[in-house]
Amino acid sequence: MSRLYAENLTLAYEQAVVATDLGVEIPDGSFTVIIGPNACGKSTLLKALARMLKPKTGGVHLDGKLISSYRSREVARRLGLLPQTSIAPSGITVGDLVARGRYPHQKLLRQWSSEDEGVVTESMRLTGVLELSGRLVDELSGGQRQRVWLAMVLAQQTSILLLDEPTTFLDIAHQVEVLDLCADLHEDKQHTLVAVLHDLNQACRYGSHLIVMRPGGEIAAQGVPSEIITAELVEDVFGLPCRVIDDPESGTPLIVPNARKKRSEHDGPVAVHEHAAL
C-alpha cells in the first residue's frame, strides 16, 4: 500500500453529494495530476486527501492510519497543502510569510530555532525567492507570489505535497515556471506531488500518474498518461471530440481539439434531431 490512499469515499458539502464510492491511491514518489471537467470534484477530492473535508463515508489513509486519527499538527508535518486561495496578510514580508510554514514544527517557546532558519532559507532558495525575502508580498507579481506560497509549503518539510490548481491566474510562462519547479521537487527531492490542473497537455507532460475524473465524481481512468489518454477517453469525459498526438517536445500525449467545422459535422445529426423534436 502507498503512503496516501482513499477508500469508498463519499464526499459532500452539507447535502450536496459531490462524489460517491471514490477510491484513489497516490503512488509513492509520483507526480500525480488530477484532471477532469469543471465541478467534477477534483478539488473536493484533494481537500479530502488533505483532511480539509471530512468524508461522509469511507476514509483517507496516511502512513497506514486513518488521517482523521492524527492530530492536525502531526498531519501538517507529513503532508503539505497549497490551497486554491490563500491570503497574504497585508504588509507581510516574503521571509515572514515563508516562515509561517514552520508552524507545525514550532512551540510556544520555540518560535525560531536555527533549524527553522535553515529550512526557510533553503525553501526560498529552491523556489528562487531568496533574494526577495525582505520585500513585501503585496509588491510581487503573480508568478513570484505563487513561488513564495510554494516556498511556504516546502518549509513545512513534508515529503507529500498537495497543490490545488497551482497555475491558475498565471500566464503561460509562469505556469511553466511553477510546473518546472514542481517537476524538480519530484525528481530531485523525491517528493510525492498531487496537483489539480486544468490544462490536459500540461497534465500529460508533467504528470507521472494521472487521475481522470468524470462529472459526478467518478474516476474515469488512472495510470500513466501515455497509457490511458486516448481520444475516446477525452471525448467521453469532457465531451470534446479531439485527436491525441505525440507532443513533439516531450513525446507525451498532446490533445488537439477538432476544428470547429469538423466538430459541427460531428454534432450535426444530433442537433437536427433535437430541432425536429421541438
Partner: peptide, 9 residues
C-alpha cells in the same frame, strides 16, 4: 485564510 491555517496544522 482558514484553508492555509488548517493545512499548517
Amino acid at each position: 485564510g482558514d484553508d492555509s491555517a488548517k493545512a499548517l496544522g
